[in-house]
Design a protein around this nucleic acid. Structure first.
Lengths: 221, 221
DNA sequence: ACCTGAACACCGTTCAAGT
DNA sequence: ACCTGAACACCGTTCAAGT
């Protein structure tokens, strides 16, 4: 029958369409597309193509592109482990922010897109509660703890963005030195630092974490 | 003559065209457009319209949109004051990063666009040299100073982004509380912090700066 | 050298129509 | 309820042509 022929043709041209289209499937495919082919490949049309469906079909499961990206953000955040509850406050703090960093680094292409996404996920608040709890144990007050939490969050996310963008992206002293922009008498310290070879992001993160925690311990005392 | 009539008509429909089109004028107008009407208004076509010129005329002064944005970034960075050279290392550090913060906050709409722009401007390296110099005076080594400089940069830019995006944009514990996502027995500290009213960004910045500097002084000793 | 208009290859989204 | 095709109002950029 003509019907069945048409069905077969549709199934062929739309390989990925065995399963029903759902919000979860749309978002999962969006993540895969973003991860494998980058942000430019993540268009509503391209995504629909990957799913073997018309672009407008997506709008039954996602309000608009903004909502799609919020969905990606949420699905990334769900990979945050629930933080440990026991141990020294310093170690609990470190564990919480190391975990945040790991999840971000595991999803490098999602991070720039997800900046400023709206994601109210329980996992994030669990991490926040754990962080506040550790800070209170360090002797900080309610207000100070909140400020310190955002200090640590800013530091962690900033460092992650920096690492993802590539070392010195857009502000490379070595490049400036190569172009002769930096006369040695005016910029001795930059030139010394630049010659100091490669950059260890893990070490820089641990160093920053240590400094901040040390400052908090000190400030609370 | 028909020529002169045509000229007049062109001059009328293109009010802003008295002056010659230059890279500087293109970038200045782009900044104005971005500042007053936001990132969506900053299209090559819209910008050309503002300048009373065909879209393609811009490409004589700017390689492409990426280059236009790099130009905006550069023109913002040029507003960074040259850092002071004397004084206590703590005060010099604070002054440097307060200045960076001020320039960013004065150009809120440019900041998100400018993330990841390529801008090798002398002003930025002057600030970096000043920062490294202060850190060396604090007793840090070459490598540590560089790491600490990026810690402070990350912190400052992170805090600025956060402030520009709006308080708790995308991660609002108060909103989550309103939606009943946060049972009081599991999230006592978040709920306490949230009830603590409004957020003071200036104070949070100064607090963070203090903590980091304290940590650096302590770590060096 | 600098500018133009037309065209190309895309976007996100609305709408009316189909099942 | 879910999906479709056609259309709308945009993009950035290339190209060939004008002065």
């Amino acid at each position: 029958m003509a019907r069945e022929v048409a069905k077969k043709a549709a199934a062929q041209s739309a390989k990925r369409r065995e399963e029903k289209l759902t919000r979860e499937r749309v978002i999962a495919e969006a993540r895969r597309l973003l991860d494998e082919r980058g942000p430019d490949a993540l268009s509503m049309r391209g995504l629909a193509g990957q799913l073997g469906v018309s672009p407008m079909a997506l709008y039954n499961h996602v309000r608009n592109k903004r909502d799609l990206i919020d969905g990606i953000a949420q699905s990334v955040v769900r990979e945050l482990p629930v933080p440990a509850e026991s141990g020294d406050w310093r170690e609990r703090l470190k564990a919480t922010f190391r975990a945040l960093r790991s999840v971000c680094l595991a999803n490098p292409r999602a991070i720039p897109l997800v900046q400023g996404a709206d994601v109210l996920d329980l996992n994030l608040f669990r991490a926040m509660e754990a962080s506040l709890s550790a800070l209170r144990d360090a002797g900080l007050g309610a207000r100070e703890s909140l400020t310190a939490h955002f200090l640590l969050t800013n530091f962690t996310l900033g460092q992650v963005s920096y690492q993802i963008a590539g070392p010195f992206r857009g502000l490379d002293p070595a490049e400036a030195a190569r172009r002769g922009m930096l006369p040695p008498d005016q910029f001795p310290l930059i030139l010394e630092a630049v010659s100091d070879a490669e950059w260890d992001f893990d070490a820089a993160f641990e160093f920053g974490l240590e400094i901040i925690i040390e400052g908090l311990a000190r400030g609370a005392a």
